[in-house]
């Protein structure tokens, strides 16, 4: 198997860390992975993106031209990358910030109101974890429990935020798995 993902949005939306969560989950699940961020001035408030490649053998190219999945956290990202998604691939759209509908008919689209679900989870900053949940729910790339354990481990030094993040993950997961 090989799954290529592009995650894009504003700097500060947790785009890079969302990609890292997928990478950590991949390692926890015994897969090989590369996480490659955009870097430089565009990180500061501008658009930010990362490419994640998950594979059952060593990843060759970490550069992703045509992702299996695009996670678009803001409008510019959707328009920058939506044409590049493989036919039959998936686009996850953060509908809290993107009112537009995806025009392509050859991809699966998941709209998720990440901001509202994050508020429901009790922490506005968990929007990226909501989307992580949606991605896992949709793709079934890793077992749900593996990802939840990884979330607990990554927030181990901030135990207070673990419940909200787990709830955010569950809410996102349920939305996409519907």
């Amino acid at each position: 198997m090989e799954e290529k993902i592009i995650i894009a949005g504003f700097g500060g939306q947790g785009v890079l860390s969302l990609g890292q969560f997928i990478a950590y989950a991949a390692i926890a699940d015994g897969k090989e992975v590369t996480w490659l961020p955009s870097y430089g001035p565009e990180m500061r408030g501008g658009t930010s993106n990362c490419s994640v490649v998950v594979c059952d053998k060593q990843v060759a190219s970490p550069i992703v031209a045509h992702p299996d999945c695009l996670i678009a956290m803001n409008k510019p990202s959707l328009y920058k990358f939506s044409d590049k998604v493989k036919a039959g691939g998936t686009i996850i759209v953060n509908s809290s910030l993107i009112p537009d509908k995806v025009e392509r008919t050859d991809v699966k689209v998941v709209y998720i109101d990440a901001a509202s679900l994050a508020m429901e989870a009790g922490n506005a900053r968990t929007a990226n974890i909501v989307v992580l949940g949606a991605y896992i729910g949709m793709s079934n790339l890793f077992p749900k429990e593996t990802v939840k354990k990884m979330i607990e481990a990554k927030f181990a030094n901030k135990p207070k935020v673990i419940p909200a993040n787990l709830k955010a993950f569950e809410l996102g997961y349920a939305t996409a798995a519907k």
Binding site: I27, E32, V33
Partner: peptide, 10 residues
């Protein structure tokens, strides 16, 4: 290069 410096891998 910038990639090998910035990339995350196991």
């Amino acid at each position: 290069d910038g990639m090998i410096g910035q990339i995350m891998e196991a």
